[in-house]
């Protein structure tokens, strides 16, 4: 009773295998690189690069982040769109058409209003 669908996981097993191969490839490449390249660290070399002058302040400086608004927008919209896919698959079923279409327009309406709101609130223009 506790065996989950085996077929389902097979294709992902191959993908997993490929991932392992990929990791191996990267590891080998880095390993080879380590053998081939020189290693002569000096303080100047290890200095953070800022156009050739000595770095000012800390690397993880606080910057004014304007992008978080986009992050919000994305989180809100993109996750909504996960609903599209399962729903897209039932779209083809007979008898579903009209109902689904209405639901789709409701859904699109939501997204549009969200976008409209963000746009009118001036989120998308910088001052």
């Amino acid at each position: 009773m506790t065996v989950l669908a085996g077929e389902y996981f097979r294709s992902y097993a191959v993908v997993g295998l490929l991932a392992v191969v990929g990791v191996l490839f990267v590891a080998v490449a880095f390993g080879a690189g380590r053998l081939l390249r020189p290693m002569v660290p000096t303080p100047e070399k290890l200095l953070t690069y800022e156009c050739g002058v000595d770095p000012v302040g800390e690397g993880w400086a606080h910057t004014q982040v304007r992008y978080y608004v986009y992050a919000f927008l994305y989180v809100i919209f993109a996750v909504d769109s996960i609903f599209l896919f399962p729903w897209a698959t039932v779209f083809a079923e007979t008898e579903y058409g009209a109902t689904t279409l209405v639901e789709m327009f409701i859904f699109l309406g939501f997204l549009t209003i969200g976008l409209l709101y963000a746009w009118k609130k001036g989120v998308l223009t910088w001052t």
Binding site: E50, G57, W60, Y67, A71, A78
Partner: peptide
């Protein structure tokens, strides 16, 4: 740990989003 890198990273993120 480089300001320019950080900015670049943020821009990347924003663009992805």
């Amino acid at each position: 740990a480089n300001k320019y890198s950080l900015l670049g990273g943020l821009r990347t993120a924003a663009q992805l989003l």
